[in-house]
Amino acid sequence: MSGIRALRSRFVDAPDSLGERFRAARWERFRACFPGIGGMRVVDLGGTAENWLRSPLRPRHVHLVNLEPHPDLLPEWMSAENADVTDPDIPAKLGEFDLVVSNSTIEHVGGPSQRRRFVAAVDQLAPLHWVQTPYRYFPVEPHFLAPGFQFLPLAARAKLVRHWPLTHSRPGTPEEGMDAVIGIDLLTRAEMRYLFPRSVILAERVAGLTKSLTAVRNRV
């Protein structure tokens, strides 16, 4: 492993990385918000099987909804499908659950109208939810581990991502560089409050700075 890759692994990818410690602490906050999680049917919008298999929690059932492929083999308490949850017809097709979970997904679904569709689906799918997203004004952009990256013009981001050493998969062409950055739109606290007016907005902090925001509704 190169020195740069080792540095990224130390920050976010390795089992003992800072990112993994943040995820473990997030699971504990999640458990505190939903102490009855063991008996719940959960739909995870944008989730992965790997995330739940590494989780210390085990809901009664988890249904994964993602545009990316899922593993062929899943444990019996887990199911999955490929779907775009911003499609207005999808919530009716998925049915009803006890809890919607979504981590670091709402910032990828598109512009304001797509985010409103995402929230509409959250409201239709279950009475309770946990929707987490990185905070726009945290000084380090979390997808590329680049300070201030989210505040650069789009063209500058598309160019920089092809050369920035801590990018997970460095794009090889200008088109790939634009593809890597154009679909990420980090949210502010004001937008989360607007999208989830009946939810509590929790702040995850690092060194006193807000790193991510989570809209939580844990009471009917």
Rank of each mutant, 00 (worst) to 15 (best):
N51E: 14
Q124G: 06
V62A: 06
L64G: 06
T86G: 03
A120R: 13
I106W: 07
N82S: 15
D44I: 07
S55E: 15
F97L: 01
H61I: 00
E50A: 15
R41T: 06
W52D: 08
E96M: 13
D123L: 11
R115P: 02
L45G: 02
D87G: 00
A120F: 12
G110Y: 01
A49I: 03
R116N: 03
G46D: 07
T48E: 08
D84S: 01
E107G: 04
W77F: 01
A49T: 02
R60M: 11
E81K: 01
V101Q: 14
W77K: 04
R117P: 02
P91H: 10
R54L: 14
A121S: 08
P59G: 04
S55P: 13
G95C: 08
L45P: 02
D89V: 14
S79M: 12
G110M: 00
S102P: 13
A80R: 08
P69R: 02
R117D: 05
V101Y: 15
R116E: 13
M78K: 09
H63T: 15
D72M: 11
E68W: 12
I106K: 07
S55M: 15
G46N: 05
E68N: 08
A49S: 09
P88H: 05
R115A: 11
L45D: 01
H108L: 12
A120I: 09
M78Q: 09
S102Y: 11
R115N: 01
Q114D: 15
E107K: 00
G110V: 00
L94P: 09
R58G: 04
H63P: 04
P59T: 07
P71C: 03
S55R: 14
D89A: 15
E81A: 12
L64P: 03
V101H: 15
V42P: 10
E76C: 04
I90H: 02
L99Q: 08
L64T: 05
P59A: 05
E81V: 13
L73G: 10
L99N: 07
G47K: 03
N66I: 08
T48S: 14
G46F: 12
L73P: 01
H108G: 00
